[in-house]
C-alpha cells in the first residue's frame, strides 16, 4: 500500500477504530500502548541474548549454501592442488619435516585452524564494520534491554559457532582429498576440545575487535595488511619447529596468534608431527583469547555509546 492509499483510506479506518477503543464492545485490536495490558518490566538478559542469537542463526540459515561454499572453496582448492595434484604429477615441495610425514598431514591442522579463525573474523568483523559505520542496523539491537557489552558477547559467541562449523566443513576435505596418506590421530580428546574452543573464541573476539575498530572503507586494506600475513606466517603450511633454520622468523611469528591455533591443533590432531609444547600454546591461546575478548567488548561498547 502506498502512502497515498494509507492517507486516503487506511488512517481514517485506524482512527475510527482507535476512537472506539474506550467503548466496551469494541475489542482493543489496536494494542499499541499498554492499555489493558500489563507488561512485565523484567526481561532476563538471557532471553534477550537468546533472541539476538536466534536472529543471527536465522540470517546464517538464509545464507547457508553461500557460507558453506565460501568456507570450503579455499581449503578445497588448496588441498586439491598441493596434496592431490602435486604428488600425482610428481611435483613436490622440497624440504622435509622428517619421519616420512606427508605434506598433506601438515596441512590438516593448519587448514582446519585457518578456516576456523578466519571464519569468525569474516562472520563478525565484516558485517559489524558495515553495521556500525554505514547502515546503522545495529541501532535496534543496541536498544535491546541488556547491557551493551552483552550484545557484543553475543556476536563473539555467534562468531565462535561459525568458526566451529567451518572447522567441521574443512576437516573431512583435508582428510579425504589428498592422494598421499594422512596421519590423523586424536589421543587427547579433552585437549582437542579445549584447543578448538579457544580457537573459536579467539576468532569471534578477533572479529568483534576488528569490526568495531576498522572503518568500512578500510576493509580491503585490513585484509591485505592483516589477514594475509596472519595466514601466510601462521605456521599453517609448515610446523613452527621447522622454522628453526630461519631463527629470526621463528621468533617473529610468535606475535601471530594463528601460530598457536595451528600448533595446538597439530598437537591434538597430528601428534606424529613436531609441535610446540602444550603449556606454551595453551598459555598463548588463553592470553590471546582474554585480550581479544576484553578489547573487543570494550571497543564495541565505545562504538555503540558515545
Amino acid at each position: 500500500m502506498t502512502d497515498q492509499d494509507f492517507v486516503n483510506s487506511g488512517v481514517d479506518r485506524t482512527l475510527t477504530k482507535s476512537s472506539n477503543l474506550d467503548q466496551q464492545d469494541s475489542a482493543p485490536s489496536l494494542r499499541v500502548a499498554l492499555n489493558g495490558k500489563t507488561l512485565s518490566y523484567k526481561v532476563s538478559s538471557g532471553r534477550t541474548f537468546y533472541g539476538l542469537m536466534a536472529r543471527d542463526l536465522r540470517v546464517l540459515s538464509k545464507n547457508l549454501g553461500e557460507f558453506a561454499s565460501r568456507t570450503a572453496m579455499q581449503p578445497f582448492l588448496f588441498v586439491f592442488v598441493f596434496a592431490y595434484l602435486f604428488p600425482k604429477i610428481g611435483q613436490g615441495f622440497s624440504g622435509s619435516v622428517g619421519r616420512n610425514i606427508s605434506f598433506a598431514t601438515i596441512l590438516v591442522p593448519g587448514l582446519v585452524g585457518v578456516a576456523a579463525t578466519m571464519s569468525g573474523i569474516m562472520a563478525v568483523g565484516l558485517p559489524l564494520a558495515i553495521d556500525l559505520g554505514v547502515t546503522k542496523e545495529i541501532e535496534d539491537r543496541a536498544m535491546a534491554p541488556v547491557p551493551v557489552w552483552l550484545i557484543g558477547l553475543e556476536k563473539i559467541v555467534f562468531g565462535a559457532i561459525q568458526s566451529l562449523i567451518s572447522a567441521l566443513i574443512v576437516f573431512p576435505l583435508v582428510i579425504l582429498i589428498p592422494s598421499t596418506p594422512v596421519q590423523v590421530h586424536v589421543a587427547n580428546w579433552p585437549l582437542l576440545i579445549l584447543v578448538i574452543f579457544l580457537a573459536c573464541l579467539i576468532s569471534g573476539a578477533f572479529g568483534l575487535t576488528l569490526g568495531s575498530m576498522v572503518q568500512p572503507v578500510k576493509i580491503g586494506l585490513m585484509f591485505s595488511l592483516l589477514v594475509l600475513p596472519l595466514t601466510m606466517l601462521g605456521c599453517i603450511y609448515y610446523p613452527w619447529s621447522s622454522l628453526s633454520s630461519v631463527r629470526w622468523l621463528q621468533i617473529a611469528v610468535l606475535i601471530n596468534p594463528m601460530v598457536y591455533v595451528s600448533e595446538g591443533l597439530r598437537d591434538v590432531l597430528t601428534p606424529a608431527l613436531p609441535h610446540m609444547a602444550v603449556w606454551a600454546f595453551l598459555m598463548a591461546l588463553i592470553i590471546t583469547a582474554a585480550v581479544l575478548l576484553f578489547a573487543g567488548l570494550k571497543l564495541f561498547t565505545r562504538r555503540v555509546m558515545s
Binding site: 526481561v43 532476563s44 533472541g51 539476538l52 536472529r55 536465522r58 538464509k62 535496534d140 534491554p145
Partner: peptide, 18 residues
Amino acid sequence: DRSLNVRENLFYHCRYFG
C-alpha cells in the same frame, strides 16, 4: 535490519525484548 524481511524485523525485535 537488512538481512531480514519486514515481518522478521518485527518478530526479532520482540524476541530482543524477551
